[in-house]
């Protein structure tokens, strides 16, 4: 499978797919998409890259093991839930919103950060599983 065409293509595909995955993540609140799907698409982008190149090459794209995305994402999601408790003294996971919508992203609220947390966890989980399994076989 390690053909030159695929390798060349995958180098361009990776950033493209990653942008696409972020796009899916951001539009999730209004149209089909969201953190789960976005995270999976991003993971697939890396897996594709790993198929075309060597696994080591793909791993070098990360400074740390992708597994570290998991605690990071969990904390982000948790903090987005805790924020309302601290700032507004409302209950856990009550969404807060900026009054003005941002261009290109749309309305920004704590749920967006929650979804980003989900995205990071899903990427971390998927890549950890696939990298671990392919390394050992």
């Amino acid at each position: 499978m390690k053909t030159i065409i695929l390798r060349a293509a995958s180098n361009y595909m990776l950033p493209l797919l990653l942008v696409f995955s972020v796009f899916i993540l951001l539009r999730g609140h209004y149209l089909p998409g969201g953190g789960f799907v976005g995270g999976l698409v991003a993971a697939m982008a890396f897996v594709l890259h790993a198929f075309a190149n060597k696994l080591e090459t793909t791993k070098k794209l990360f400074r740390m093991h992708p597994g570290f995305l998991m605690p990071f994402g969990l904390t982000l999601a948790l903090l987005s839930g805790l924020m309302p408790m601290i700032i507004e003294e409302s209950s856990f996971l009550t969404a807060m919103w900026l009054s003005e919508a941002l261009p290109a992203i749309g309305a920004v609220g704590t749920t967006l950060f929650f979804d980003i947390g989900v995205y990071l966890v899903v990427v971390g989980v998927t890549l950890t599983i696939i990298f671990t399994i392919s390394e050992s076989s």
Partner: peptide, 8 residues
């Protein structure tokens, strides 16, 4: 998504 985790 969970079943993916379970399967792996």
């Amino acid at each position: 998504v969970i079943s993916f985790g379970l399967q792996s």
